[in-house]
Nucleic acid binder design. Sequence first.
DNA 1: CTCGACTGATACCGTGAGGGTATGGATCGG
DNA 2: CCGATCCATACCCTCACGGTATCAGTCGAG
Lengths: 291, 291
Amino acid sequence: MDRVETRELVYFVAVAEERHFGHAAARLGISQPPLSRAIGQLERRLGVILLRRTSRSVTLTPAGEMLLHEARKALHAMDAAIRRSQRAGREDPCLPVVMKPGGDGGLLSQILTEYEADSAAIPVEVLVCGIGEQATWLRDGRADVGFVHHPHDDLAGFDTEVLLTQRQVAVLPRSHRLAGHAAVTLDDLRDEPLPRWPGMHPDSTSGPEVRDIGQVMQLIALGRAVAILPESVLSRFGHDLVGVPVPEAPSTTVMIAWPERSHSLAVAAFVRAASTVAAHHHSPAAFGVPA
Amino acid sequence: MDRVETRELVYFVAVAEERHFGHAAARLGISQPPLSRAIGQLERRLGVILLRRTSRSVTLTPAGEMLLHEARKALHAMDAAIRRSQRAGREDPCLPVVMKPGGDGGLLSQILTEYEADSAAIPVEVLVCGIGEQATWLRDGRADVGFVHHPHDDLAGFDTEVLLTQRQVAVLPRSHRLAGHAAVTLDDLRDEPLPRWPGMHPDSTSGPEVRDIGQVMQLIALGRAVAILPESVLSRFGHDLVGVPVPEAPSTTVMIAWPERSHSLAVAAFVRAASTVAAHHHSPAAFGVPA
DNA sequence: CTCGACTGATACCGTGAGGGTATGGATCGG
DNA sequence: CCGATCCATACCCTCACGGTATCAGTCGAG
């Protein structure tokens, strides 16, 4: 069995995602017949049927599901390989750090000063991604270090270090009926409009759909929503909002993550700086959370 | 910047490992000129010099080092994708479990009976690999679950669960001067011939070179070597040998590992069985070890 | 210093894999 | 039964990949 080329996996992923040869071909910028041939050829080569196609629908077989899952990982690894080697080759080196808005738990500026105290430090480029995208950016090489959150983010495949754990609070407008309480329960919030985040199970609450923290805060200020968030977000975004602890909600852990088996000195230095800052921080990290 | 094909990465890895275009070409089964062109083309495409070549030597640039490292991971992921999807497609499904000889801590047979108690269980195929190869087998898809050992194996990129921790003992022939002791120190063993394992730092001891547990045991029985090993190996291999605890040596942890974000039900069932057996085992796992 | 051995790069050519267009065949809705 | 839709097949063409021959450095032996 000879080699499977990148192109073939890209084609397969396109068809598997679109579930339509024509649309996939358009997305790939080729015409439909070569795409059909390529998929058929791939199936013959693997000795496995990947797609069940009728003239009305295209569905994935179990082998196809597996390949879709694994091929995405493989293609991310390919992207990462070229991006990281390109970065290592430029004489303008930089260390890309990814976070979502407010995702650093307020530690980043201290970490940067600590990190940059070493005069040999490579400049940091801070990248701000959408919610829940940090892992993807790390996997495909757009970033080398990132701030992620347990249990929200998928940490598989990364080395991590815990920076701090935070209580979660219910973020409410000042005028809210619960705003004065010392603590609230999840039951208290049962009928409140909790916003829905991208990537969340769509079954849950029927609140408004949101894409970033700013939107949530805006909606809360307008009384259109209520959210349960780590308390640190209040200090950055919630100037006219109040936070009431929710003891039932699991604590959030801010972690720093980097790709498995990274050999980068810059990554190691940055992680060391982050650990130092976290250790000197008032609330020491409680305990390690296995990935 | 368009796509980088698998073939190009395979070619680059060959040259980077051989550090010689001619030898790499032979290994790849092609002639040298196309290989030179492919590498040059890859460099032009990435906009980065990967190799410094004189007519006497080929060396890697920093970008080349990075690409070698990342390309290996990417190619493993490609292999894993095709292997796993092929496995998922066969109507003869099986769950490949990898271990090194004696690497299951004596738990595997119990785990198998526990696992197979579920009549819907997919048959397990037990694969025995060389020492320290479990991670590679998991990464390139030859196995879906494996028994690995902290701190010996590289666990990055896997989900893991601790099964048990073991003291380490000095394995000695009965006639050894230390054989009667209740415990020994590392200092006691300083001048003993400790065998060298593949993948070990070659600086360390000057003992004989070995490839598997059987060889070590043989050498010990002959009085040609002494080894520090987890105590469970004695029950399987050391019928005429004795073990003396070495309190200084860090405990070994037997863990079960599987690829990040596996969606396989069979893997989940096997891990569940392993956890059950480990929990009912006399010596409960002491504590989780972060990857 | 010169010659030969060695190694990577270049020039040139032929073949075949990949992409395009046209069309067939199956399925579903009206 | 007809048209619409969608994937597969047939056929052709281009160019990228691989092969052979050769050039251009570099080092070592004599």
